[in-house]
Nucleic acid binder design. Structure first.
Lengths: 83, 83
DNA sequence: ACAAATAATGATCCAGAGAACATTTTGCCT
DNA sequence: AGGCAAAATGTTCTCTGGATCATTATTTGT
């Protein structure tokens, strides 16, 4: 199941989840991504409207990529919500 | 087929493609997204490392959403490249 | 409950994005 | 070629994210 993000809050949550799934601390991830722990924290808590480049750095460090897809395309998660 | 973006350049291209597919001008889209034509142009041409919030505004206006998925998950496009 | 690891946050500086006007350039159509 | 619509780009201002230092709060394991 892939994660969907429509807001910065979503994005922060997804990133945190992905980081934890990899057993990385914010400091670890920051080092991997070439940014600061402070920034990782800010982004995960949606404390700032991050820059796209920073997000791409994080995604790359987490081995993730962005797929841009039409909204309203129903997902397995949606089905689970219904049934 | 959904679009993949790993860089701001990718993202700009995807957004432009989506906008054109909807027969919108940059000015139209800007209005829809509540931003400026100047900004749409900048983002489509990767002339600036945009802010995430701006991207979300654009995606919403284009009825698109972000899916965050593990990299290297093979896509149909990849297969087409191989065969 | 305690210690150790992890996350949150305070403060300052600087670079750069977006707002807000504009004009110029490019592309398309007939 | 000429004209119009669309995209690119110039400029100034303001605001804020990230870098960079730090310390405090919180979570987690035992």
């Amino acid at each position: 199941m892939d994660q969907i993000a429509r807001t910065t809050k979503d994005l922060g949550n997804v990133l945190r989840k992905a980081r934890k799934a990899r057993n990385l601390t914010q400091a670890d991830l920051a080092t991997l991504a070439g940014i600061w722990q402070r920034t990782v924290s800010n982004i995960e808590t949606s404390a700032s409207g991050a820059k796209v480049d920073t997000i791409f750095d994080l995604l790359a460090a987490l081995d993730l990529e962005l797929h841009i897809v039409p909204r309203s395309k129903m997902t397995l998660g949606d089905l689970e919500d219904i049934f």
